[in-house]
């Protein structure tokens, strides 16, 4: 039976969630295409991971090699080239993550295998891969057709599919496969992990957050935002561009490359609602978004939508909060 590969992603001894998200979507595609859902795990001392994967997949290909201890796209590329040559899978799914983004395009180019990236949906229609992704910061979705081929590579957006363990567990067979690597990768070497600098403020512990985005326009407006946050008894957080510009330190960033927060209130000011930001705040209890663009994607995640110029709202809001607090005491 032809195979459908899901490349397991792991780091520092942990399988990452995207792996199980892909295995869940992969199961659906495998059933429809009559392929065998096969998890592929490359690493060093990862037999325990292989067992966990076997609960989800019909087969697990396990390649162990000390050279695979930490992710290295060149090492992964070489091993996958050998596995693809041996198994000719219909599809190889990887995460659209820091690892998948590094590996997938290069592997695709090396083997001339068509690639579709950052997918929020995928299916085979008449033997051909159709792939859906987002454009323009999530304002538009695009359905693409991928050129006909024997094998396809797709990178899958994180947190798009909800992992579900098959019941009963798939109990896939673990196929230990010798590593094809014969020497160290000289042109690209892993050196070390670098932890984020210890932060002064823990936004994940805050009960209320005011999140500011590029819509606040100027660093000169930051004090106003701080004041509003203070009045609300909230902590100031932000989208990535605010950190990139150096207006707030890294520890205030909400999103996939920042923190995941779950406050009782998330007040988003001038944030468009890009996927990477939303990932970090969509589980907040109450989300109020202020954005002058009625089509801003943030409004499909918020509970309350204020379509207005944020600068018209901030001062009145601050005043009304102060009034309310005064009434209370």
């Amino acid at each position: 039976m032809a195979k459908l590969f899901v490349l397991a992603e792991h780091r520092q001894g942990q399988l990452r969630d995207i792996t199980f998200e892909m295995l869940t979507k992969g199961r659906e595609i495998a059933e429809k295409t009559g392929t065998e859902l096969t998890a592929v795990i490359l690493g060093s001392n990862v037999k325990e991971h292989a067992k966990a994967l076997a609960e989800y997949a019909q087969a697990v290909i396990l390649v162990e090699d000390p050279r695979l201890e930490n992710f290295n796209s060149e090492a992964y590329k070489k091993v996958l080239q050998a596995l693809i040559a041996a198994h000719k899978p219909l599809l190889i799914m990887m995460g659209h993550t820091s690892y998948g983004v590094e590996l997938a395009p290069r592997l695709a180019a090396a083997l001339s295998i068509p690639l579709a990236t950052d997918l929020i949906d995928l299916a085979f229609e008449a033997d051909q891969l159709t792939a859906t992704r987002q454009m323009y910061g999530g304002k538009v979705n695009v359905k693409t057709v991928v050129r006909k081929a024997e094998t396809y590579i797709a990178t899958i957006r994180t947190a798009t599919f909800t992992p579900q363990k098959p019941s009963p567990p798939a109990n896939g067979q673990i196929l230990e496969t010798p590593s094809p690597l014969t020497e160290d990768i000289a042109e690209k070497r892993f050196l070390q992990y670098v932890l984020p600098p210890p932060g002064g403020v823990d936004i994940t512990a805050a009960e209320k957050l005011v999140g500011v985005g590029r819509g606040i326009k100027d660093q000169a407006n930051m004090p106003l935002m701080e004041e509003l946050a203070k009045t609300l008894g909230a902590v100031l957080a932000c989208s990535r561009p605010i950190v990139d510009k150096g207006w707030l330190p890294t520890d205030r960033q909400v999103g996939s490359s920042g923190k995941t927060v779950k406050p009782k209130l998330y007040l988003a000011l001038g944030i468009s609602g890009a996927f990477q930001h939303v990932l970090g705040m969509k589980s907040s209890d109450l989300i109020i978004a202020v954005n002058k663009d009625p089509k801003a994607p943030i409004f499909s995640f918020a509970d309350y939508a204020v379509v207005e110029d944020l600068f018209k709202i901030v001062l009145p809001l601050k005043n009304k909060v102060n009034e309310a607090k005064a009434q209370k005491t």
Binding site: F71, A186, Y193, P196, S256, K259
Partner: peptide, 15 residues
């Protein structure tokens, strides 16, 4: 330095 998820980075060396 490559950024990984959640603020973690990895340092690698390329020729």
């Amino acid at each position: 330095n490559r950024e990984l998820e959640g603020g973690l980075e990895e340092q690698i060396e390329v020729k």
